[in-house]
Design a protein around this nucleic acid. Structure first.
Lengths: 151, 151
DNA sequence: GTATGACCTAGAGCTGACTCTAGGTCAAGG
DNA sequence: CCTTGACCTAGAGTCAGCTCTAGGTCATAC
C-alpha cells in the first residue's frame, strides 16, 4: 500500500476527508509546488494541518478553500488580495463588512473585465466576418492594408 | 514651438496624421517605452517610419494598428501571436486563410475566457449575497468557517 | 551658449506567479 | 539492506511583458 493510499483510507468518511498534497493538487488543479507556495504566501486562513511525519493533510474544507482561491485567481485577483481575505477569515466573525467590500470590489473587477472582453470579441468577430466574406467572395479585395498591404 | 508641436502641424490634414512617439503613446494608451518595445518585437507589419532626424513618425494607419494590438493584448493574445499576425499582414494578400484561422482561434479564446469569468462572477456574487443577507440580519450567523471560523 | 525637453539605442531590471533544484526524511516492497 | 516514490524545506530560476537606465543627439527657448 502506498503512502497516498494509506492517507486516503483510514477513518475518512464523506465530509471528513484527509488528502495528501498530491491528491489535493489533483483535485484542485494546482500543482504540488503551487500548493506549498500558496501556504508559504499565507493564502490559507490557517496553515494546513500536518500528520505525525510533518506531511500536509488537506481537509475537505481546505479543498473548498482552494476552489475559491482558484476562482479568485482565475478572475485575476492578485495573491495579496487573496491573502488579505484569508487573514480576515482567519480572524473570525466581526469583519464581514471588509470581506464584503473586498468581494464587491472584485465583483466589479470581473464585471468590467467581461465588458472589456466583450468589446474585444466584437472587434475580432467583425474582422472574422470580413475575412469570411472576403474569402467566400473568392479572393483579392483587400480590407485593410498598411501603406500598400492588407491586415 | 516644441518639437512635438512641429510634428503635429505641417502638412498634416485629417487622414494624413504624423505623430511623434509621445503623441502616439498618448493616443494608444501605451507608454513610449512600450511602443518602442513593440516595434523591436516585430509587432508592426513594417517598422514605423522615421523623419530626417531618425525619429519615429506614426501614421493614422499605425494608430489603428496599435488599437487592434491593444485589443488583442487586452484579451490575452501573447506577443508572439500578434507578431505572427503582423508578419502575415506584412506579407500581403494570399494568406487570408491563416489570418482568419488565427483570429477565429482567438475569438474562441475570448469566448471561453468570458465563460470562465462568468462562472467566477456567479460564485463571487453568491458569496456577496450571503454576506449581505447576513449583515442585514444583523450579525453573528457564520456562513462558512475554517475548523471553527468564518470565510 | 546653455538649459530644457523630446527623442534615440542597447541593454539591464522589475513584477507576479509560479516552477524547479538540491539535499534530505520516511515508509513500504522485494 | 536498498530502492522507490511521495513527501519535506529553503531558496534559486523562469517567463511574459513591460519599464527603466545610461549615455547620447538635436532643436528650440532664454
Amino acid at each position: 500500500m502506498t503512502q497516498s493510499a494509506a492517507a486516503a483510507a483510514g477513518t475518512a468518511g464523506p465530509g471528513d476527508v484527509r488528502l495528501t498534497i498530491g491528491q489535493a493538487a489533483e483535485r484542485s488543479g494546482l500543482s504540488v509546488h503551487a500548493l506549498r507556495f500558496y501556504e508559504r504566501e499565507g493564502l490559507f486562513p490557517s496553515p494546513v494541518q500536518r500528520d505525525a511525519g510533518g506531511r500536509r493533510v488537506y481537509s475537505d474544507w481546505d479543498i473548498e478553500w482552494l476552489e475559491l482561491c482558484t476562482r479568485l485567481r482565475g478572475s485575476g485577483m492578485p495573491l495579496p488580495a487573496i491573502r488579505r481575505y484569508a487573514t480576515l477569515v482567519a480572524a473570525g466573525t466581526g469583519n464581514e463588512a471588509e470581506r464584503l467590500g473586498l468581494l464587491r470590489r472584485h465583483q466589479a473587477e470581473i464585471t468590467s473585465q467581461i465588458a472589456d472582453l466583450s468589446g474585444c470579441l466584437e472587434i475580432i468577430s467583425f474582422k472574422v466576418k470580413l475575412y469570411e466574406e472576403r474569402m467566400a467572395a473568392g479572393g483579392p479585395d483587400p480590407i485593410w492594408v498598411p501603406p500598400g498591404q492588407t491586415s
